[in-house]
Nucleic acid binder design. Structure first.
Length: 392
DNA sequence: TCTGGGGTCCTAGGACCC
DNA sequence: TCTGGGGTCCTAGGACCC
């Protein structure tokens, strides 16, 4: 199940008098350096696509209105859609903010022989009625089939592939329409003279393995036949949290970069604590003026959760990256991974040998600040360095 | 047309252990 | 004396998805 141009829909629901009345609506693309996150169906008629630089989109469709991404509202609306789906399907996996897999295996008796297409259409209507979000559903016995079918269902529709019809269903698509095939793989495929799923399906397994490696060869052999053994897993856990910013203008000043790094660290730390998690790995991402993207990470023996500890690790990683190449930066990001559950408060340490990145006291303070922000807003408490500038 | 921000997964090399 | 084979973990980079 896939929400139709989700960000556009939410922007309209949030602002019915403004964005809601604009047929030619583009969402995203803050500043001239941005890209379009989502385009209304009318705007797509002009050739606008998501991921397209805003400047180009404006050229193609000068009358279009550009609205900012309503992030918070999208997250909220996505949750309500999810909740409705959970009432209608035993297994629901959120694949992204606007995309869900439902495994209806075992509901046949309960549904008393209702056709899958009828079930899908019922889900579509209920979601629309309860959340105001228009969605499309694709159905099949395999994940990849359901996913590709969803595209045929759009907008606001349903497309079901009957059992046994998987291979012939897939045969109609070009290889770039297969999820998992991007520009790089497509180029390799083209070199072997393959452009469609049907062509790839005619090649023996051994040849695909020889050309593209055993892993990818086997993967391709299965997908072009509509075979995808991966299960729909409702318990999939979040594996990383990150926050990154492309600056309005490149930044070359180390102190300014460090202030931005602190803001990003606070954002990531807040999300981490909200989920009651800790992170063992902190990663810094730096994109230079020439779009060269570099990354550095560091893994600690114990998970951390405070802004202070995340920032401390991130700052040292940033220094390393800047030391290797000191050039104006276009983007800066902070990420955390290797997530572990918050442990109960620890006892006093008797082996105080090495300095700890964060203490129980740091954690208590961080959580207190979170509660203040919950109550009085994000700006109620802020790191002094953000306000005061470079002095430490 | 110079390229967002949030993610996942894979690969390959090196450290380290038994 | 300069050498096996298995495993795990970490790091950096890249492909890909919405």
């Amino acid at each position: 199940m896939d929400c139709d141009s989700f960000f556009v829909q939410v922007a309209r629901l949030e602002d019915p008098e403004g964005a809601g009345k604009e047929p030619l609506l583009l969402v995203g693309g803050r500043s001239d350096r941005g890209v379009i996150t989502s385009a209304s169906y009318a705007a797509r008629e002009y050739g606008v696509r998501s991921g397209m630089p805003t400047r180009r989109a404006r050229q193609l469709c000068p009358e279009a209105v550009v609205a900012p991404v309503p992030r918070g509202a999208c997250v909220e609306r996505s949750r309500t859609v999810w909740a409705v789906l959970e009432e209608m399907s035993p297994v629901v996996q959120a694949a992204s903010i606007d995309e869900f897999y439902l495994d209806l295996t075992g509901t046949e008796r309960m549904l008393k022989g209702e056709e899958l297409a009828a079930t899908a259409d019922r889900i579509r209507r209920v979601v629309k009625a309860r959340t105001e979000v228009a969605v499309s559903l694709g159905g099949g016995t395999q994940r990849v089939v359901a996913k590709v079918a969803t595209r045929l269902a759009k907008p606001d529709g349903v497309h079901v592939v009957r059992p046994g019809g998987e291979a012939s269903f897939m045969a109609q698509f070009r290889l770039e329409q297969l999820p998992g095939i991007g520009p790089a793989f497509l180029e390799q495929l083209k070199k072997k003279g393959l452009t469609t799923c049907a062509e790839a399906a005619a090649v023996e397994r051994e040849w695909l393995a020889r050309w593209f490696g055993p892993g990818r060869g086997a993967w391709l052999w299965e997908r072009v036949r509509g075979i995808d053994a991966s299960e729909v897993d409702a318990r999939e856990r979040r594996k990383s949290i990150s926050s990154e910013r492309t600056f309005f203008a490149d930044i070359d000043d180390d102190d300014e970069l460090e202030r931005r790094l602190l803001e990003l660290s606070c954002s990531v730390g807040g999300q981490l604590r909200a989920k009651e998690l800790r992170a063992r790995t902190v990663t810094v991402k730096l994109r230079d003026f020439d779009y060269k993207t570099r990354q550095a990470g560091s893994t600690q023996p114990e998970g951390v959760e405070t802004d202070r500890a995340i920032f401390a690790v991130a700052a040292s990683l940033l220094h390393g990256l800047r030391h290797r190449r000191r050039t104006p930066a276009r983007l800066l990001g902070v990420g955390v991974s290797n997530l572990v559950r918050q442990a109960p408060a620890e006892q006093l340490e008797f082996f105080g040998g090495e300095a700890k990145l964060e203490t129980e006291r740091d954690r208590t303070i961080a959580r207190a600040v979170d509660r203040i922000r919950d109550r009085y807003g994000r700006e109620a408490v802020r790191p002094a360095r953000v306000l005061d500038g470079p002095e430490k």
